[in-house]
């Protein structure tokens, strides 16, 4: 079972950092620029996963399993979030026939 961390360690840690930063920024840009709720949602998942990746990498390099356990928690919470979030999006679509977030501005001043 020791192989996986070793496999992970074959790639320098900095690369993970670059990669997950890139993923995270892609996620942010997606969140900020797209108007479709589902795509925004996916971008958020992307951001979460970039963090997960980083957690795993650090965990492997430091030989500390806590980081990977944390990843499981995040994945579980994200799954719950997806369930609720998608349900909301479906309801919005049913009501408005659209998932464009810019239509959802009823709460303005």
């Amino acid at each position: 079972m020791n192989e996986i961390p070793e496999v992970i360690r074959t790639i320098p840690l900095n690369y993970y950092l670059y990669f997950s930063t890139a993923l995270f920024v892609i996620g942010i840009i997606g969140v900020l620029t797209r108007r479709n709720a589902i795509i925004i949602f996916m971008c958020i998942e992307l951001m979460l996963n970039s963090v997960n990746l980083l957690l795993t990498a650090f965990s492997a390099y430091r030989s500390d399993p806590n980081g990977q356990i944390f990843v499981f928690f995040i994945m579980a919470v994200a799954a719950a979030e997806v369930a609720v979030g998608l349900a909301i999006i479906v309801m919005i679509y049913r009501n408005l026939r659209s998932t464009d977030v810019n239509i959802l501005n009823r709460l303005k001043w």
Partner: peptide
């Protein structure tokens, strides 16, 4: 100040970021 409450989700997120 109420104009900050624009209702546009995008702007909220931009501000948050």
């Amino acid at each position: 100040l109420r104009f900050l409450q624009s209702g546009a989700v995008g702007s909220y997120m931009l501000l948050m970021v």
